[in-house]
Design a protein around this nucleic acid. Structure first.
Length: 666
RNA sequence: GCGGGUGUAGCUCAGUGGUAGAGCAUCACGUUGCCAACGUGAUGGUCGUGGGUUCGAGUCCCAUCACCCGCUCCA
């Protein structure tokens, strides 16, 4: 069935398959889960390992100028102070949703603004309304709610109360409740000031949430909440929890938000212990942790994830001689090598692009960064790797005794904590310098999602029965007619906000449906997808009738297959007996499986009919299946069935070894 | 956090106040000569959680929790 294959249309499909077949499970599921943490099951662990191994082979083994390390996840707090991670994002920031500018919250709204607003607009007005408006009991009830809201920092509750106030439910006000609680507060401006000070964060959040602040850039009032951008996970070193702030600070540690700093810490160790000469690189694979504000999209963005990073140390531009690569050239080389890696593992170039980061999105340490982006289903292009030119920023930041002009150039403060200077004596240049660094940094877990999406296909495996296809063809004009009627209805409505249906969406639906119908039966899966997933399609009466029929037929005639590159496939080989109740076949099949188990992941299965066994392996991306049948008993050959083409060929048991070892690279 | 949606068997879901169901999956036995076969039987759910209304709640009300989808997060 040429042209009858469909790639993944949604992350949901991939997520379901992952859960069903043991790639990825929700973490802490027995306790209702924990926001966006995932466990990798038997197949997921294999796949992830294979991805990391493929990466390691490509960047460490294949080259002669890169070595690997495995640094500790917990590092001195000083590391994160001097790398900039602790300070950079620790201020409360707000974003204007309208013009997308970001500001420090205290630049947009001074403490005075917030306090004044709280005082003027709420207090003064409310003072007059409260005493008369509330009965004592209601007052107490609301007061308790307010106090709870403040104690738990519940902006939502405060905002609701404030909105109610604005609607004119006069007595339900933030300060009305306060007033009800404590008459003294009403009478004492000083107590007010103290109260606002004590709960300043809550007020500030409400201030932005309620749109009281005006964007300096575009004058809009549509803000995100002020957020403390410290995205590092805090923990403490030592078995005893600190009791006071000072002890907390001295014991505090962070789970690393990136693996890169562990490499920088080991620059000199690796250079000296292996007597490496610049240029050389250090690679590392490991977990990293970020308290993301918005995790989501399955394993695309999670708070615990895995990185594959290289820091490649090179000569600073001023020491580069004629004929040597400069930083820009090294950067390009790495961009190309990394791009090719993804393509080599089966990612289609139509879905992988290099994207130049704009000047205003570059990180503070970066001279130039190119992202590799994969075109995910549903949410579109998403970064899977970033290749940055980090200059000499990092090694300088962790070094003592840096000249003032370098500090100024890199906008760094002198480092009085470090006992090290991460410089390097270059015997060729006969000079001592701090190397520059090119950093290719990929997400291993994110790569897994990309590879799964890329590999996921549904395809027709047999011709659907002709009568059923004819029946579907016959019903499609009715669907189109009905849809067009809705489209006309929608177009009559001049106010777009009042429209029940989107005319453009309906038109697109009809066009796609008619086009696909002309290609039946090949297009059966496309029609199924259109009827099932096109926005609004399920509202059409004829679709309600037709969709279940199409869906059933599609499922009967299709398979799900993961077309994973053999190097990535969790299981390389599955061995079956054609009949499980014939001991002579079972014995041979088991023996074949045992032969290859030590070399690459091989499984034996006889728990279903042969067709189902093939389907199961298709679904998890096993590239080859071997079936032992009665002919095996006669001539020592088995059937080798290839996943993507479903072609099979008979191969002698003696030749099997060569067949696999030339095709599988573990 | 806001808005929208969803929570019933391992999975997909049905069940609009009256004895918790179907299909798939799983397991056992039998059958089965290559692409999701069949028969018989079995396992499996305090209907997310806690209250309330009711003679009676999966169903109605309130609360709560979790997850999913949209609002810049940079692997």
């Amino acid at each position: 069935m040429e042209g009858s294959t469909m790639p993944a249309r949604s992350i949901e499909q991939v997520r379901n398959l992952s859960k069903r077949r043991g790639f990825v499970f929700p973490g802490s599921a027995a306790y209702g889960g924990l926001g966006s943490f995932w466990d990798y099951g038997p197949l997921g662990a294999e796949l992830l390992n294979n991805i990391k191994r493929a990466w390691w082979r490509d960047v460490v083994y294949r080259r002669d100028d890169v070595d690997g390390i495995d640094a500790a996840i917990l590092m001195s707090r000083k590391v994160w102070q001097h790398s900039g991670h602790e300070a950079t994002f620790s201020d409360p920031m707000v974003d204007c949703r309208n013009c997308r500018s970001r500001f420090r919250a205290d630049h947009v709204a001074s403490e005075l603004d917030v306090a004044r607003h709280a005082y003027v607009s709420s207090v003064e007005e409310m003072l007059h309304e409260v005493p008369n408006a509330i009965e004592l009991e209601g007052r107490r009830l609301l007061t308790n709610r307010l106090l709870t809201a403040i104690q738990t920092n519940s902006i939502d509750a405060l905002a609701r109360i404030e909105r109610a106030r604005q609607r004119g439910d006069g007595f339900i006000s933030v300060f009305g409740q306060l007033a009800a609680l404590d008459p003294d507060v009403l009478e004492s401006g000083r107590r007010y000031a103290e109260f606002i000070q004590d709960h300043f964060e809550v007020f500030r959040q409400a201030y932005f949430q309620l749109g009281l602040a005006v964007c300096p850039n575009c004058a809009a009032r549509d803000w995100t909440l002020p957020r403390n951008f410290n995205l590092m996970f805090k923990t403490h070193v030592g078995p005893v929890e600190a009791t006071d702030a000072e002890a907390e600070l001295s014991a505090r540690a962070y789970l690393r938000p990136e693996t890169a700093q562990g490499i920088f810490m080991n620059f000199a160790h690796v250079q000296r212990s292996l007597a490496r000469k610049v240029p050389f690189g250090i690679a590392q694979v490991g977990k990293a942790f970020r308290n993301e504000i918005t995790p989501g999209n399955f394993i695309f963005r999670t708070r615990e994830f895995e990185q594959m990073e290289i820091e490649f140390f090179i000569k600073p531009p001023q020491f580069v001689r004629e004929g040597e690569k400069n930083d820009a050239q090294w950067h390009d080389e790495w961009i190309n090598q990394r791009y090719e890696w993804w393509l080599g593992l089966g990612v289609d170039s139509a879905r992988l692009r290099q994207r130049e980061q704009a000047a205003d999105e570059l990180a503070h340490y970066s001279k130039r960064t190119v992202d590799l982006e994969y075109l995910f289903p549903e949410f579109g292009w998403g970064e899977v790797e970033g290749i940055a030119n980090r200059t000499d920023y990092d090694l300088t930041a962790h070094s003592r005794d840096i000249p003032a002009e370098d500090l100024a150039r890199l906008k760094l403060e002198p480092n009085t904590d470090s006992v090290e200077k991460f410089d390097y004596f270059d015997p060729d240049a006969k000079a001592r310098y701090i190397p520059w660094v090119i950093e290719p940094s990929a997400g291993a877990t994110r790569a897994m999602l990309a590879f799964l999406c890329e590999a996921y296909h549904e395809e027709l495996t047999k011709d659907p029965p002709q009568p059923e296809i004819e029946a579907i063809k016959a019903e499609i004009p009715a669907v189109v007619k009905n849809a067009q009627k809705k489209q006309k209805d929608a177009e009559k409505e001049t106010d777009p906000a009042q429209r029940k249906h989107d005319p453009a969406a309906i038109e697109a639906f009809c066009t796609a449906l008619e086009e696909a119908a002309s290609r039946l039966p090949q297009s059966l899966l496309e029609i199924d997808a259109l009827l099932t997933e096109h926005p609004g399609a399920h509202n059409l009466e004829p679709v309600k009738k037709l969709q279940p029929k199409v869906n059933k037929l599609a499922e009967d005639c299709a398979r799900v297959v993961l077309k994973l590159h053999p190097s990535l496939a969790p299981i390389k080989l599955a061995v079956f007996p054609l009949k499980k109740n014939k001991p002579e076949l079972v014995d041979i099949a088991r023996r074949i499986a045992q032969t290859y188990q030590p070399h690459f992941r091989t499984v034996y299965d006889d728990s279903a009919g042969i067709g189902r066994l093939y389907r199961r392996q298709d679904e998890i991306g096993t590239p080859w299946c071997v079936t032992v049948d009665f002919q095996t008993l006669e001539d020592n050959t088995v059937t080798v069935r290839e996943r993507d083409s479903m072609q099979q060929q008979r191969i002698n048991l003696e030749a099997l070894r060569d067949y696999f070892f030339t095709r599988i690279h573990v």
